[in-house]
């Protein structure tokens, strides 16, 4: 709070003080009061004015400077009233009480939304588990009564399963609570599960999968990693180059402080302009426009899951040549000891 601004704010008060001083001088002269007395009265009046304004200024300055300083330093600015002491001047007190009421109402509002969001997420999680039952049932039926249609049904059921998984993991990635377990997960088993799940689609486009150095274990949630690799594999099998046999190579590499998992294909690749944006929500880019049915959600979900688990995912690509995703897992000696 600057003195000049404060004085400007108090302009009306000074105007009224000046008018009353003028009137007083007028009457004092009219009653022929001696000049000395008039001067004394003026000095007392002036001193009173200065003393009153100085005290008022510093009282408010202390409070408001404190508030501004704390606001600047505060990460969650809506918590400001928790940091302040109730001021000792009336307008400040009124404002402070207002803050508290507004904040309480906001907290209630936010928690109502949070409850709604939580309920919704819980429902989605439950719904996904429910929908898997008829899918499982249909898959068994398709297998038991397998004729030519059986295989086609299986393919469609796998698609349904893939989309429901996306919903499940989207809900999980947006959830603030910790619903994953980080433990030592062998890469070999995880990759094998992903490959098995995508075997039919891989064979449909004649793709082969090469693996190297997957005898390592990483600290992660196995189920989440399976989903992430599944998304990458689905992309690799979707964006293939006509007339070139698709090859997906998955390899792991151990560095002193982390393990890198490389996931590389020889598909259409991603153009340089699109590459920095592929992890954005709903971003489809050139490839998305060229191929139907891109939602722009797959990689976004993968990225959010990585962020939540503390892994770092990066992408490198050359248009028409290859795409390579690398996931870096931190190594934690502490876990190994336990």
């Amino acid at each position: 709070m600057k003195l000049r601004e404060y004085l400007k704010d108090r302009l009306w008060f000074f105007l009224i003080a000046a008018i009353s001083l003028g009137l007083m001088l007028l009457f004092l002269t009219a009653y022929r009061v001696s000049v000395q007395l008039t001067a004394t009265i003026c000095v007392i009046f002036g001193l009173f004015l200065i003393a009153e304004e100085t005290a008022g200024f510093f009282r408010k300055k202390r409070f408001y400077d404190d508030m501004q300083g704390k606001l600047d330093g505060l990460d969650k600015k809506y918590l400001i009233h928790e940091m302040l002491k109730r001021p000792d001047f009336l307008d400040g007190q009124i404002m402070y009480d207002g803050f508290c009421i507004a904040n309480k109402s906001m907290c209630e509002n936010v928690s109502a939304y949070k409850r709604t969001a939580d309920d919704f997420r819980e429902f989605i999680e439950m719904w996904v588990h429910e929908i898997k039952l008829p899918v499982a049932s249909l898959q068994l039926m398709a297998h038991n009564h397998s004729d030519e249609l059986g295989e086609k049904f299986q393919e469609q059921l796998r698609r349904i399963d893939g989309y429901t998984d996306q919903v499940l993991y989207y809900a999980r990635s947006e959830n603030a609570e910790k619903d994953y377990i980080i433990k030592e997960t062998p890469l070999k088993r995880t990759v094998a599960n992903v490959a098995l799940k995508n075997r039919e689609s891989a064979q449909l486009c004649g793709a082969s999968i090469e693996t190297e150095g997957l005898d390592l274990s990483v600290m992660t949630d196995g189920k989440w990693l399976e989903f992430m690799l599944g998304q990458l594999m689905a992309n690799s099998l979707k964006y293939t180059v006509e007339g070139r046999e698709p090859v997906i190579s998955i390899s792991a590499e151990e560095l002193p402080d982390r393990v890198l998992l490389h996931f590389r294909d020889n598909g259409t690749g991603i153009s340089e302009a699109d590459l920095p944006r592929i992890f954005e929500k709903s971003f489809t880019g050139e490839n998305g426009r060229a191929y139907a049915k891109s939602t722009g959600m797959g990689l976004y979900i993968v990225k959010s899951l990585c962020d939540r688990l503390g892994h770092i995912i990066t992408a490198a690509s050359e248009k028409g040549e290859y795409t390579e995703f690398t996931i870096a897992f931190a190594k934690n000696q502490f876990y190994k000891m336990v």
Binding site: A192, A195, L196, R199, A202, G206, A207, S208, E210
Partner: peptide, 13 residues
Amino acid sequence: MTALWDNDEFVND
């Protein structure tokens, strides 16, 4: 094929 892939042998047709 399933048996092979289940044993980490990701061969093609």
